[in-house]
Design a protein around this nucleic acid. Structure first.
Lengths: 249, 249
DNA sequence: GTTGTGGATTAGTGTCGACTAAATCTCCTG
DNA sequence: CAGGAGATTTAGTCGACACTAATCCACAAC
């Protein structure tokens, strides 16, 4: 709970004593909806925070009351902890379930690009539908065919089959100081248009670059690409989406 | 209609004048359930017959009233023609939709066996779930990667992207006269145990064989395999599942 | 402290697709 | 041609998930 229930705990007016969730062994077969909600909560409460009803509703494009209802169900299933009017976080089980779905999604994305000729700006929607239908066995076969990859086409880390995920310490290109020598690691957008633009300009994970210049007041950033040495001007919105690792000088 | 509404047409007590279905252009995005029902009707009314409520219910493992309800909906959507208490057949549109789903299923089965190391007795369930989630684009990519195959791992013909399907004129091994020289073309079971047995004994599509002997009264059939010349005894139930083409002597 | 406002929840519905129980129809048989 | 068996449909529910409208809570601002 941590960030969730520190104060105003009494606001729950001691509600019906949280039912036991029977410690599911492994695969209770979650519905598509449940998986989507768990993913949303995972992404929104990413770094120790709390997912609010509104944010979940926006992300999943449903009305707020639908979220309230579903969070109540997920809470009864033992997949989230929530404090009414405050927000929700995943339990350990909920987190495992979310990571299983995310693993499926990311392995699928990579497989579609590597083995079936999809461009990186078109795989998201396909993976979004398939992630609810594939078996873990199929995902593992795909992962094997891909040589157990660690990152998807956008640079996001792929959770392992046993539910571990790498947490990288990255900095947005928009926040990196001028002069930084960086390696582009993740591209955190799914907008096809942006992705196509980025690919066209060589801005894909693995790229080595140096921050050459930045206009003040959120203006564009100029980066120098390695090894070619060409320069590229990246607008603010795009720079925010490019997550980088600082590289040894 | 043909076989459906020849007699007892008045049994419909002139019901509310069949609503217009608005001649959908191409892809109205059918639900998983609808696709399953269409497939069931397709398979059950295969050779000009009629699919009955009971048979559909058995095949889909649902209760009969669920089938009645759904057939009414499908009829309203213009996907089946039905005569109450008699049965249902697909319309042209329904048949196209069913073939689209079947194409997806069979391409998936073949892809899973050829490219991801699945055995032919394990692909059915996986394909059954995936067929409702994959895009036509993905299926076409898989088909291309497979070099536009004509048959799935069990020998069933794969419908083309524009909805044509090969109709083969096959005879069951159980019905082939002694002395026939045959090529095994299709294996019409999805039972994993049988499939494993068949594969273990080399009884897979493409096999050349000769009917050497048959016990009377539905007893086992003995076949001689080509080119090895070894003999194999096949029980009645299995023989019925092996569909063959007669081969030039 | 009261109060206003925006976010959250409850209340009440609707749809899809399943179910059981109770009619109803078809068609075979005597 | 009357009955009856079995298949089919109707009637009434239910659960999962969505919605809108109305109410409720939290928190910041006075």
């Amino acid at each position: 709970m941590t960030a969730l229930a520190d104060r105003r705990r009494h606001a729950t007016r001691s509600r019906t004593a949280a039912r036991r969730a029977p410690a599911r062994p492994s695969l209770p077969a979650l519905s598509r909806s449940v998986e989507d909600y768990l993913k949303a909560v995972y992404h929104l409460s990413d770094h120790g925070g709390v997912a609010t009803t509104k944010d979940i509703a926006l992300k999943l494009m449903v009305a707020a009351p639908s979220v309230s209802m579903m969070l109540k169900r997920l809470s009864a299933l033992g997949l989230v902890k929530r404090v009414p009017y405050q927000g929700a976080q995943l339990t350990r089980e909920g987190r495992q379930a979310a990571l299983r779905t995310i693993r499926r999604h990311r392995v699928l994305e990579l497989y579609l690009t590597r083995h079936l000729g999809f461009a990186w700006d078109t795989v998201h929607d396909e993976a979004e539908r398939l992630e609810h239908a594939v078996s873990d066995l199929l995902i593992d076969r795909m992962a094997t065919a891909l040589d157990n990859p660690r990152y998807d086409p956008h640079g996001d880390p792929i959770p392992t089959a046993d539910g571990r995920i790498e947490s990288a310490d990255l900095v947005s290109l928009a926040a990196a100081p001028v002069g930084s020598e960086l390696e582009l690691r993740q591209v955190t957008t799914q907008d096809p248009e942006r992705l196509r633009f980025l690919a066209d300009h060589g801005l894909v994970p693995g790229l080595q670059l140096t921050v050459a210049d930045r206009q003040p007041f959120g203006g564009p950033t100029t980066v120098r690409l390695r090894p070619a040495g060409t320069r590229q001007i990246v607008g603010m919105e795009l720079a925010q989406v490019l997550q980088c690792r600082t590289r040894a000088k």
